[in-house]
Simulated assay, not measured.
Amino acid sequence: MTTTTAAAPRRSTGAGARGWLARAGGQNLALVGALALILALFGSLNPNYLSWANVQVIAEAVTITGLLAVVQTVVIICGALDISVGSQAGLASVTSAMVFTATGSNAVLGMGAAIGIGGLVGLFNGAVIVYGRVNATIATLAGLAAYKGVAQLVSDGRAQGYVLNDPIFVFLSRGSVAGLPVMVWLLILVAIAVHVLLKYTDIGRNVYAIGGNDTAARLAGINLNKYLIAVYALSGMVAAVAGILLTARTGSGQPVSGSEGLELQSITAAALGGCALKGGKGGIGGTLLAVSLLGALSNGLTVQGINAFWQNVAQGALLVAAVVIQQRRNRERAVGLPA
């Protein structure tokens, strides 16, 4: 008696391609395509644009924004927003330089004080939101003004100290490892750490759960208050690291210059990278791609001698486009229009 074995069903090429696209993420592929288009466009207009030296310039220029965008991604996934990250970076920058000067050029103490201030500011933001029952957008919008004001008060509105006579700050600002600036390596390390936290730990899964459905997360036993405060503390500390890099790049503590507008850039990058502004969705990979795209666009406009004000126009347009795409993808009803 002959037995026949049924052949395993073949997966069609189309199904396999769709699975690969799903794993890669349509948003990320679109960002890769847009980035390639920008590189090709400006590369054809100026051959030096694609030189390794200019690529390093772009990478270094987006480091501070990238750090803030990475932590903004975590905040948004948790269903909140931090509009004060730019002011926090400015406050940390001033703190690092002033403590450095006051302690006889002790870079470690200066950086430690900046990160400590960042953590305290983040905890304060979280406490105001949780225990004061203030909307996250309003609370951090108030923080945007308040922390900028504090930085200007303690520094008298002027750049503070000079840190480029210290080897640690010099290494941060001018050092390189394996052909990449140290600042870029720092962004990569922070991004990897946050990615692992979000994707491979219970903490990260709980952050996604809170942003996706806070009621269900609370019923599942997740302490929403603890997580929200912790997320804002993380935001403050990473913003402080960005402030330290700002000090290293400029050679002094900057209360406003260099940090103003970073909050909008971080939110734009997170939204472009696929973060749902209502929370529960997003990832570090998409955010880094969006940061790279914004940096490549900004550098290309600068290389071509286009008015820098157009960069702000482009940034605002990209943010609106990212939100519109999210609304359409989620089939959400337009405000004021029938479903």
Rank of each mutant, 00 (worst) to 15 (best):
G33M: 08
A24P: 00
G19H: 05
K199I: 03
E60I: 00
L21A: 12
N312F: 03
A136F: 00
I267Y: 02
I192Y: 01
G33T: 09
L109Q: 14
L50S: 08
S257Y: 13
Y162S: 13
A127Q: 06
G79Y: 01
Q315S: 03
V154G: 07
A233N: 06
A114V: 01
T65N: 15
L337Q: 12
E60A: 12
P255I: 06
G122T: 04
S96E: 00
C275T: 08
I58Q: 08
V291P: 03
L164Q: 15
E332A: 11
T201L: 05
V313P: 10
A216P: 04
G305K: 08
I117C: 13
G157Y: 12
A34K: 04
T5S: 04
I117Q: 05
A339Y: 04
N135H: 15
S176M: 08
F100V: 13
T140G: 06
L234G: 09
T73R: 09
A151E: 10
I229P: 02
A242T: 05
L294H: 05
I284A: 03
V324W: 07
G16F: 09
W52P: 05
I267K: 01
S252T: 14
G212C: 10
V32F: 11
I222A: 15
V182R: 05
R333I: 07
N206V: 00
A22D: 10
S155D: 08
N330G: 01
G90E: 09
Y131N: 09
R328L: 08
A209D: 06
A92W: 02
A114L: 00
F171S: 13
A178W: 14
